[in-house]
Design a protein around this nucleic acid. Structure first.
Lengths: 290, 290
DNA sequence: ATTCATCCATGCATTTCTGCATATCCCTGA
DNA sequence: TCAGGGATATGCAGAAATGCATGGATGAAT
């Protein structure tokens, strides 16, 4: 009658990952252990939870039912850990920050430096991720994000507005100033594959030369003179070998926010982080806007 | 970073029970184990969860936070177990029934008999409880209850209506028929300490001789001739040595229901139980009403 | 004041769990 | 048809968790 709760967790992992090995990695145990915990859960519930197939474990209906409720247990655990973290008044231990790769590389370094100097007992863990980490699941404690609002369930402070405009190598910029009607090669981001109307009006010779799925690659291509890139002001201004192209008016872009889960928000470490970040962005506002 | 989920359960039990030993009994392990699990949880969370006092463990704020979320995990587990139970199509294993003590003793026996004959692989577990067991927490699978509705979150079938009237030893009944204006000694139930108006009108000589907190004791007192008791028809009729007193009209009383949690309701064992119980009460309706 | 019951801490032997190494199975692609 | 990769089972030794017994402390009742 008393089922080990950790066995539920094994079932959940297997349902999510479909194989013992992947599930085992998920919960940091040997896959043999996962197999045995699943077997124990089956014995305790009296239900077959998985079909054992050559390509992995396929959950039965009962298995899915168990996993579904185990997922609820898991989110209760996450809420608990957030709650504990939020009421933590200590300035020591780990603090995990996530931010877009390029923001970390070009603008956040002084913040990290300052924070680790002021709070040497805190180990900063940086996750330079292009994907959005799940702050509910504590994949990170705090995030710097570029967006129009803090996000559904999250709390946030707007650090600064941003503008975007075209940047290119100096010779491109010179050519565009000399002959605005001439050909202009653009490098664009896969997710925004079209040029805005105002760009085509200003430079009728615009054409898309390449599409990139990665902003780092794209900006180094621009540095090498392959073409013009629309990018946030702070980025174009801090990348050597790039200058702002003429005639194009900088346009508003998504703001920069510092966000965290409201449960975690009050923690001392996060407060300390914000105390450094907010003034930092306020002072450097001119870097980000036109 | 990977906390054993069973450690949370230990914390929850200690917060609920206040001492290691009681908590240990709750979760069927040695109290030493509870102590160690709590210690492990404290190490893993980095928080002190309890103050160790001579009279037991007192939870800190952090401890209460953990317990609160562990309770959520626990109810997710209960929901899971209910779900598994509800989709169980087997007519074997255990089935736990709860019902008021007196109903089991006087009226339910044939149902139990019939059920165990038809389904010999099912082990019936009977909990004759005067308190209401928590069907959410699976303290029982199914309940026979005397009430006006199935209950907030539960599903139910009305088995029969009931009437209530006065019962006493034959000499009391004879005396009351002879001299309705004479003295009548009543034995009443603590929770309904007053006699209804219509009783006092019919028998102006009524007086309360004793109050009981237990219906079994009260009915045997009536059997011994100590006085008159208002009780459900089925009970008065099935207790030897008691007869219905004259003049008093039987009054409607709370109905009898068979109830279960909606998650568990569809299970084969419960269906089988209802298949026996419902017709049984339908046939014996005359026992319960005037 | 003393006894008693209750509760917690700790050391030790045992049971249980875990990880590793090996064997087996199945599907896929040459 | 046969080799190879990925997946699951199983035997065994080491690690971890558990239960028991002992000892000490505290508070309630006599």
């Amino acid at each position: 009658m008393n089922i080990h709760w950790d066995d539920y967790r094994a079932v959940l992992a297997v349902v999510r990952k479909r194989t013992l090995s992947a599930a085992a990695e998920d919960i940091c145990v040997n896959y043999t252990t996962v197999a045995r915990r699943v077997a124990r859960a089956e014995a305790a519930t009296g239900e077959v939870l998985f079909e054992r197939l050559a390509e992995g474990y396929r959950p039965t209906e009962a298995g899915q039912l168990v996993a579904q409720h185990a997922a609820q247990m898991e989110s209760a655990e996450h809420a608990m850990l957030r709650g504990l973290s939020g009421r933590d008044t200590r300035l020591e231990g780990e603090l995990t920050l996530t931010a877009p790769q390029l923001l970390i590389a070009h603008g956040l370094a002084p913040v990290l430096d300052e924070f680790s100097k002021q709070h040497p007992s805190v180990t900063l863990r940086i996750r330079a991720a292009n994907e959005i980490l799940d702050l509910n699941r504590r994949e990170a404690d705090i995030a710097i994000r570029i967006s129009h609002n803090p996000g559904d369930t999250l709390k946030g402070l707007r650090l600064t507005a941003q503008h975007v405009t075209g940047f290119a190598s100096p010779d491109w910029a010179a050519r565009m100033a000399d002959d605005p009607m001439g050909a202009v090669d653009w490098l664009v981001y896969e997710k925004r594959p079209e040029l805005p109307e105002y760009v085509r009006k200003t430079y009728p010779g615009s054409r898309i030369r390449m599409r990139f799925d990665d902003m780092v690659a794209m900006s180094s291509a621009a540095q090498s003179g392959l073409g013009v890139v629309r990018m946030p002001m702070f980025l174009g201004r801090s990348l050597p070998g790039l200058v702002q192209v003429p005639l194009l008016p900088p346009k508003p872009y998504a703001d920069i926010w510092v966000v965290a889960h409201p449960d975690v928000w009050p923690s001392a470490k996060l407060e300390a982080f914000r105390a450094i970040t907010v003034p930092h962005f306020r002072e450097r506002r001119p870097m980000f806007v036109a």
